[in-house]
Design a protein around this nucleic acid. Structure first.
Lengths: 214, 214
DNA sequence: GAAAAAAACTAATAAGTGTTAGTTTTGTCG
DNA sequence: CGACAAAACTAACACTTATTAGTTTTTTTC
């Protein structure tokens, strides 16, 4: 008779969710059975129901926990006094670090939210849409004050979020780059894709570090 | 007794695969049953087996068909005589147009390949890895001749492919931008993220269209 | 229209699903 | 040690899964 063992940083419920997350990430939500999760812990499937309501509840907890973290960070950034590009950089860095530190949960939230049960599915989609709109609004402000290149802000948001979301395929790659270097390269590429190089920008704090040879 | 009807552009097997693709895209491979696919056509599930071997065969056909298209295009580009940035732009445009015109298949290939049966899974992963390596090699050449910004080419490949892969979440978005404009904006942002702005580049064909105020 | 082939059907299989009920073991506290 | 609660277990449920076998219907061919 094995046991579910709570740790300092988590209740027994957390242990189950963490074990499930690892499998959801690897095989997908639908392809992971309650028996798989239980076996991964070293216990029989019905024992899990002493701590959780249902399989769907696990997915809920994962997706909404991730959502809350992103929303909280965005609110902070919105309230700050930095330039638009600095705000965007902060958001991009936060996304990348989340992808590295919490990558199982973020991956699941990104890829398995379809399987959320109603009414949580509708709620999740609306929150996600709201998050993206707020990012697009931020970019639009940057375009208006000539900090940001003239691109469609919705496309830019889509591009940035997707690019970062792809980091998951990195983890399992053979040639592993260290995460700091991954972050710096990605930030550089994405911010350079946003930055307006065509005019001298008198509105924004000039933190353009690139050397220019004229 | 309904029938599976072959069309001009496809055998009955193609009809099944197309119908399956639509469901795989919507609900995922595992969550889609043979009965779902059959019902979508208007037929009973066992009838499908007159044309296909198994459910897994459908996934195989989809993933490898997409893979062949990308590989073929890459080979063409590699053999051409354009600058590195032009080659990259061609590849990016091809990916975007594939995502728009064949988006169900591309999406499935991107998201459901995990469920390929062996030995196809191993084969698929190795082909994908090879494809990415060749893109990284291309970018490295661009860095060496100062066409491309000094970024880690593996990270750049990851960023570009992921960014484009995210177009799927576009299709179901409410504010739909037309696909030509989506393509132009995305190309602009990604190529600007690659282009080396820091030195005058005497090696590459100068097709940098941006106005510079010095 | 009869014979042959193609393509649909129904029925059934064995395996796997999330989950519940009821029971036994384990750990805790006096 | 004895009592009580917590947490594990086994057995079973109703359902769904991909797939096979065998049969009937439809289409094609002469």
């Amino acid at each position: 008779m094995a046991k579910i063992i709570a740790t300092k940083n988590g209740s027994k419920k957390d242990v189950i969710i963490h074990s499930a997350a690892s499998l959801f990430k690897e095989k997908g939500y639908v392809a992971t059975s309650m028996r798989d999760i239980a076996e991964n812990i070293g216990v029989e499937a019905p024992s899990l129901y002493n701590y959780i309501e249902s399989k769907k509840e696990i997915l809920n907890e994962i997706c909404f926990k991730v959502g809350r973290l992103f929303t909280a960070h965005l609110a902070e950034v919105e309230a700050s006094a930095h330039s638009i590009l600095d705000k965007m950089e902060s958001i991009i860095r936060f996304h990348i670090s989340m992808m590295i530190e919490e990558y199982e949960n973020v991956y699941i939230s990104d890829h398995e939210w379809r399987h959320l049960p109603e009414p949580f599915l509708t709620d999740f989609k609306s929150r996600r849409s709201n998050y993206r709109s707020r990012l697009a609004t931020l970019l639009q402000k940057g375009i208006d004050n000539n900090e940001v290149n003239r691109i469609n802000p919705d496309v830019a948001v889509l591009t940035i979020l997707s690019a970062i979301g792809g980091i998951e395929s990195w983890q399992q790659s053979s040639k592993k780059i260290d995460s700091k270097s991954l972050e710096e390269n990605m930030v550089k590429m994405l911010i350079d894709g946003l930055r307006n190089n065509s005019v001298i920008n008198i509105n924004s704090a000039n933190n353009n570090k690139k050397a220019r040879v004229h």
